[in-house]
Amino acid sequence: MNAKLKIFLAINLIVIALLVYTYPHLMVAPGKLSQGHQQLATDCFACHSPFTGADANRCLVCHKPAEIGHLTTSGQVIAKSGNAIPFHQKLTTRDCIACHSEHDSIKRSQHQGQFNHALLEKELGSRCQDCHGAPKDSLHQQYTGNCSQCHNQEKWLPSIFNHNKYFVLDHEHSARCDICHEGSNFSRYTCFGCHEHTPANIRNEHLEEGIRDFDHCVQCHRSGNKHDISTEHGKNESEDD
């Protein structure tokens, strides 16, 4: 390279360095800042610590944990909307970046969910309905129990619950949940919720066969098929036929 070219390159690079210093929000920021933070657009180190990234301690200078959800950073009272409740006071760690990203492009390509339930205190983490309304479909509307019986906190779908593992819901057992699970208590069940099975006829049928322990129906009957009966040793009698 000749000297003129080197000087030309040097001048260009100095100009770029000056532009980066003067307009960091245009030259290096990964997209626009969120609405509430736009006044910080040219002051990267208001939120970022050198070489370690956005720093929760710098967030906390303006966002006092005790006030989040109650007051704005300027001290205005926040009107309660819907089911939303302030929960930042119940976080186990102050890790703002785990859930929040303030630049446009980071939001677009974030590979984790926007909210990390693992940061909630255990007791609040089990009170899903404090923040989430029940889904409007007919299955969920009849259910008042804890969501975690069927769903985990990583993803709503797919549901972690497989009813067939306990009892196959064939066409004869396609019933409302509370027919078998009274009061939406899914830790218990009864087979006497419908007119087909009554304590008396179940008792008689089992005693005829010499079976005296018949309180826990699904221990032997895993489906509505009367030939599909597992013994207490887990062996399927129908397979022996």
């Binding site: 390279m1 390159l9 260009n12 690079l13 770029i16 360095a17 980066v20 290096v28 990267c44 970022h48 050198p50 070489f51 370690t52 990234g53 956005a54 970046i97």
Partner: peptide, 21 residues
């Protein structure tokens, strides 16, 4: 040369502002 300097500036800005985890 221009690419190297610009890329270096980009990489430095990433190290300066990005939180690696």
């Amino acid at each position: 040369v221009v690419f190297v300097v610009l890329a270096l500036a980009h990489i430095i800005s990433i190290f300066l502002f990005w939180g690696w985890r």
